[in-house]
Each structure stands twice: as C-alpha cells, then as structure tokens.
Design a protein around this nucleic acid. Structure first.
Lengths: 281, 281
DNA sequence: TATATATTGGAATTAATATTTCATATTGGC
DNA sequence: GCCAATATGAAATATTAATTCCAATATATA
C-alpha cells in the first residue's frame, strides 16, 4: 500500500468520484454500490457485498486494489472507521471539542461544543428516563386543577416554555415569576387539588427551594426536575427526575430538560383528552 | 437461540446490567468491556476483543451464550445493528415515532419523539450553520454597547436564556419584555452602537416584527434567528440564521435554536475577552 | 475439609472468508 | 476483422477467525 491510499472516507469518496469515468464496467458498478451503501461495505463480507452489488468477490478485491489498498479488508477499514467516527462516544467528542476551544480553535468549535453537549444530554436522558416515574408524573399533573410552574435563573427558560405550551393546550397554569414580588401570595392560593412542576439545578436558586418548600407544606403535590438525589427539591417532590446535562465552556446544556418538559406537557394534554373522552363516553 | 434473546442494543444493555451482579468474574469483565466499548464489539474479532478485554476468546463466546445467543457472531450483530440504526436518517426514526404516538403507543413514545426531534434539529443545524455568518454575527455583537434581546411566545425562552447567559458573562443587555407595556420606550434608547438579537419563527409574533422594524429604523444592527428567507425578520437583519427545527405532536423543538443562542453568547464573551487583551497588551 | 459444581485457560478443530489463479470473454487499436 | 491488452467469472487455495473441547483451577456446599 503506497502513501497515497485514502485513509478517511471523504478522501476515498472523492477519489472514487474522480476516477469514476475511467473505471471498467464491473469495477464502476461496485464503486457506485460502495458509495450508495457504505454501511453494507462496513459490515458485509466480500462474498455478501459482491452478491448484493451483482459482481464477483474478485472484482471487489480488484476494486480495492485499484484504489491502492492491498485488499478488500483494508478498504473495509475505511468504511468502518467512518461509522466509528460518526458514532464516537459523545463524551470523547466533547472532550476533544473542549480542548480545541481552549487552544483557541475559533468560534466554530464553541458552536460544535454546544451542539455536542446538547446531543450528549439528550442521549443520556433518553436512556435514564424512568417510564414509571414519567407515567406517575403525568397522572399527577393531568388531574391538577392548576399547574404551578416554578423555576428561576438558568431553569427559567424551561418554565416559561412549559407555561407557553400548557397555555396552548388550554391547561390552566400559573408561572411563578418574581417580577412584582408577589410570589408568596401567588403560592398561597395553591391547594392539594393543584400540582407543581419545580425545576432547579445546582447551585439551586434559594427562591426556588423556599417556594417549593412552602407550597409542599400546603399539601400540593410536586413534580421536580433536578440534577441529583441530593437536590433539596427531591425531598419535597412526589415524583422527581434526575437530568444530567453536559456542559460546555461553563454553560450547561438545557436541551434534555427542555425535551423532558415538552414531553411532560404534551403527555399531560394527551392524558386529559383521553380522560375527558372516557368521562363523556 | 430462544425467543427471549435481546434483539436490540438497549434491551441487551438492560439485560446485561440486570444480571451484572450474578455473573462470574471473567464474564462480568467482558460484560463491562462490552458496554464501555460497544464499537469494539461491533468491529473487532473475537480474538482481538478478548485480548483488549483481558479474557480468552472462549470466555467471550460463553458470555454471548449466557445471554442466549448461539455464539459471538450473533451477539456481534446486535452491536452492529446499533451502529446502523444510529446512523439511519433521523427523519425515518421521527416518522416511525410519530406513527407510534398516533396509534397511542403510550407516553414514552411522546418523550422519545421529542428527544428525536431535538436530535434531528441539532444535527441539521450543525450541518447548515454558515461559519462566515456566525463570525459576522459575533463580531457585530461583540462591539455592541448594549445587546437588546427580542423574542415572544415560543421563542421567549431562548431570549430569556440569552439574557441570563449574557448577564453571567457581564455583558450589558436588555431583554425586551412586554410585561409593563413599555417596549417602545425601551427600544427608543437603542443607538447604532448597540445591537439586537431578534428571534422569531412562523407564525411570527406581530410584536416581534414590529419592534424589530422600529429598532432597525433607528440604525441598530440586527442579528436574526428565524426559519426561512421569507421571514419578515430577514429583511431587517444585518446577519440572519435559518434554523429548521423538527416538530413533534405540533410542538416544534427548540434545541437547535438554544444551542445556537448559547454558542453566540459564549463566543461573543470570548471575542470580547480577546479584544480586551489585545487593547491592553 | 472434602466433594461437587462452576469457571477459566489454552490448544485443537471446524467454519468462514479473503485472496489468488487461471481459463474465458470483452474491448480497443490498427 | 485480427491481435494484444484488459477485464471478468468461477473455482481452488490460503488465511483468518469462531467455536469446541478438555484439563486445570477456583468456588461453593455439606
């Protein structure tokens, strides 16, 4: 194998497209197949790929050799590497991006970092979400007269989104904002027939904790979204979700929390529709 | 192979975690290795994997058999399938989830749908973001005296997050909220030395459009985040970003917009620090 | 502590897969 | 239309990899 052998998929792809016109019929056939079905090349055996592409295994090997590889196996490595790269653990990618951003690799690295942090967080929560807790939270919120939404600072955007979505779904809700300093009074109206969604992450906003405590003491059931079982919110909550958001450049992602919040909201709307139908029918 | 053999990676993972405690030492060792390095299982040979994990090839096969597979090869299929799946177009996955949710497959499907919508949106924006526009926007915002942040309704959570992050980075900013109905006056203070981040998606909130128009007429440069070149925001903006968010159950994701917003904010902070250093040094 | 049982290591065996070879077919140049 | 060069197909071979087997070791049980 000489030095000009394509080592990464993109180079390989470019090389193939470049030579396409000058390739013999069967070789061109397998070349086209390779670019169209890269996954098959990555996973198949020489025989299976050759069959799918309608050529002989030997043609496949000749194709590889024409490209400078010493056989099908080394060509296949490139196709496998591609899947690995794409799929390389988000954590590793994040670490790499952080290092890149550190050394001043430009602003694109910052953007990539936030995208990676969001993706990591989403795949984490997708794995970690407990179905039973989720159902429980939905049931609890669906039968509430009014849903109070409680969050400050970094979590406030989530709360405001929940309030917006609940509004669109015509579900009565109250966003507990601090603007006029009337939170205590607002909370005072809540009864055990209502429910609360409280969101707070370390370092927990004191106001959120305090208000959650107060409302819990009134017997209002609480669904908490927070970051660990040591969270002060967890002790007040009937149901709580642990959401681990990845951070980048000192700013934590918010995507997993958002996704959970949206799902909760829409599921509650769904549940109410179901229950409503059942009552009527 | 009986019928209870895990066919997909997540089931397999759960099965392994479930039995983890009761597995013999070497089997547990390979089990841990498998979950930590799924890609190696997908691509390696029995011998190479066994060596990396520090066990004998036969142990690897016993591990597979304990899980109900008839050999290493069929276990490996699951790990390969995972790479294929992950790589399969998000659009397809979203469509499948939508169908599932439609037919009332339970609330988990709703959650999965929102996670998938967020992931799709993130990978889309990651591909679509124009580096030059991004740099331009950063430059424009970095030299602003005050950054005005303008968004209502669905986009408001993004605006409130930007305001929070800018605050933490000690960058002067003004969130244009409608609470007290003083937006016009607030906007009146903006000068061409300031800058605006305006966010709006179809159906564009009339207030956002109107305020953006007003502030543009005062010569204040505008960075817009919106959803198409037909957006009324685009015509007022010096730089604008097109963000295509996937939707689920009638609610659009907000993750891509969030990631872009966070990246913009942090990059502006970064740029200011650089410029500051250069001025001093 | 003795015995049965389960687990592990490593070599032998079997299966599979890639590669080579060679006869045959096709193409391009004169 | 003929010859040389090139390309192709199919089977033979060499290589690599998975699996099995059995002896050795460790673990649990009575």
């Amino acid at each position: 194998m000489d030095e000009r052998v394509p080592r990464d998929f993109e180079t390989l792809r470019a090389t193939i497209l470049d030579r396409r016109a000058s390739l013999p019929k069967r070789i061109a056939q397998i070349a086209a197949y390779a670019l169209d079905n890269p996954d098959d090349i990555a996973f198949g055996t020489a025989a299976s790929i050759a069959a799918s592409a309608g050529v002989q295994p030997s043609t496949l090997i000749r194709f590889a050799q024409q490209l400078g590889f010493d056989g099908f196996t080394s060509l296949q490595q490139v196709f496998r590497e591609r899947l690995r790269e794409r799929n390389s653990s988000y954590d590793e990618r994040l670490a790499a991006l952080r290092a890149k951003a550190e050394e001043g690799a430009g602003h694109r690295a910052i953007f990539d970092g936030f995208v990676a942090a969001a993706s990591t967080s989403l795949s984490d929560i997708s794995r970690a979400l407990n179905d039973a807790h989720f159902e429980e939270a939905i049931a609890l919120l669906a039968k509430a007269e009014t849903i109070y939404v409680l969050a400050k600072r970094r979590s406030y955007p989530v709360a405001s989104y929940i309030a917006y979505a609940l509004g669109k779904l015509k579900i009565r809700n109250q966003l507990v904002e601090s603007a006029a300093g009337l939170n205590a009074e607002m909370i005072g109206f809540a009864t055990p027939r209502d429910a609360v969604i409280a969101i707070s992450f370390s370092p927990y906003a004191p106001a959120t904790i305090e208000e959650t405590r107060a409302i819990a003491e009134q017997g209002v059931p609480i669904v908490a979204i927070t970051d660990s079982s040591f969270s002060p919110l967890a002790q007040f909550a009937k149901v709580w979700f642990e959401v681990a958001e990845a951070d980048f450049g000192g700013f934590r992602s918010i995507s997993a929390t958002m996704a959970l919040a949206m799902a909760l909201t829409v599921a509650v709307g769904e549940k109410r529709r179901e229950t409503g139908r059942r009552r009527k029918g």
